[in-house]
Design a protein around this nucleic acid. Structure first.
Lengths: 221, 221
DNA sequence: TAGATTGTTAATCGATTAACAATC
DNA sequence: TAGATTGTTAATCGATTAACAATC
């Protein structure tokens, strides 16, 4: 497989996966790149190019890609079978909402616990998809990671004022990936440049929407 | 001003704005593009290029940009003084969390009401930053928009199963911009191509994080 | 003055789109 | 066979980075 695949490719791969999941076709049927264009809005050329980048070459001329095989390839790229355990930092409304998302289950992402500093929350449990998630104190996090060394990803859902400080703490604890949902743009501290950080969706999203509405001419998504 | 400014530029402009806000410098002090690089991580060349694209030419050689003037320009680009009224669709945990975000206030984005179909929620009020936000029934939305024609943006925070259907409804009601927080990729119905839709942050974000962690070599943000 | 910093143009890089031979 | 669709290469497009004259 060629290295250095752009994250845009990965994002689109997740589009294909989701759309295909929704279609719910028989495993032995075929989809063409043209069909994928129809259901995802991504051009068929782009689709084939993406597959090429990722070494997905299971297509049959005149038919397309067998659904079963294609699923297997997409799952491989997205590491869905491997899955991932994550913790949610911040057990307020946002943190709890995120932890309960079904999507985690579909994608084999497993929230194992929430952490907070609010003594009203610590000790309680959150009902999520059949299982109960414990809400623990931030002070317990280090010990928890010792016991669960496979956890490398944190979802950050603390109030915006505490976000940067909490990020620094998480990096100190050795997390490798952090998805920030606090509506603030966070900076990785010096020396932590190889930690993967996805920043603030909401803030930037809103600005984009507002800009587009007030400057009606482009139509990029 | 040159037209056709990429949304990436807008995103970075919001970075500059946020970072500058956080620094809280005296209004008559100056920041250079080099300083902006330091605080945002965006290269000084990129900063100047962005300003050039947007017609921001208020810099003084050897000094940089006067903080007061720069704020004025950034606020202009981001339409912050103009502001925007928005409604939140879905008054569950996620919708309520979003509606209470301080960020809305800072950016002059004003949530005026929430809408839901759950009779346990409809009629109640959400305490948010001093004011009380009414939770109304979806059936009231059409009438509400008649009374508040300035509302063009909806924040979509319904459960993922209802997301696509609700989106279609919102478009039918004439919204021009929709930020989707349901963890699902939504498609604009045919004919609504000029509606601005920002899709699902969380799903794509998680995939990106996981891909990067499992394929440690690139270091793009 | 010398050094620093702008605004703007030019060069590079990367991503998307188009083209097309191969072939089922 | 003819038409459709792949995998892959080439062309185009757009965004980022580098360079630099102007000048405070």
């Amino acid at each position: 497989m060629k290295r250095k695949v752009s994250l845009r490719v990965i994002r689109r791969i997740s589009f294909y996966y989701e759309a295909l999941l929704k279609l719910d076709l028989p495993e032995d049927s075929y989809v063409s790149s043209k069909k994928l264009e129809e259901i995802t809005g991504v051009s068929c050329n782009q689709v084939r190019q993406d597959f090429f980048y990722l070494g997905i070459s299971i297509g049959k001329q005149k038919k397309g890609y067998q659904v079963k095989k294609l699923f297997a390839e997409l799952r491989r790229v997205l590491s869905i079978d491997r899955g991932a355990d994550v913790v949610v930092i911040g057990a307020g409304r946002l943190g709890c909402a995120l932890a309960q998302y079904k999507i985690f289950k579909v994608r084999n992402i497993n929230v194992t616990a929430l952490f907070d500093i609010d003594s009203n929350l610590v000790g309680r449990e959150l009902q999520a998809k059949g299982k109960n998630l414990p809400i623990k104190h931030m002070d317990e996090l280090r010990g928890y990671l010792k016991k669960h060394p496979e956890i490398k990803i944190a979802v950050l859902a603390v109030p915006e004022d505490a976000a940067q400080q909490t990020l620094d703490q998480l990096i100190d604890l050795g997390f490798e990936g952090i998805v920030n949902f606090a509506p603030r743009i966070l900076k990785l501290p010096k020396g932590a440049e190889d930690v993967q950080l996805v920043n603030d969706c909401i803030g930037a999203s809103l600005y984009k929407i507002i800009y587009q509405i007030y400057h009606q001419d482009s139509e990029e998504q």
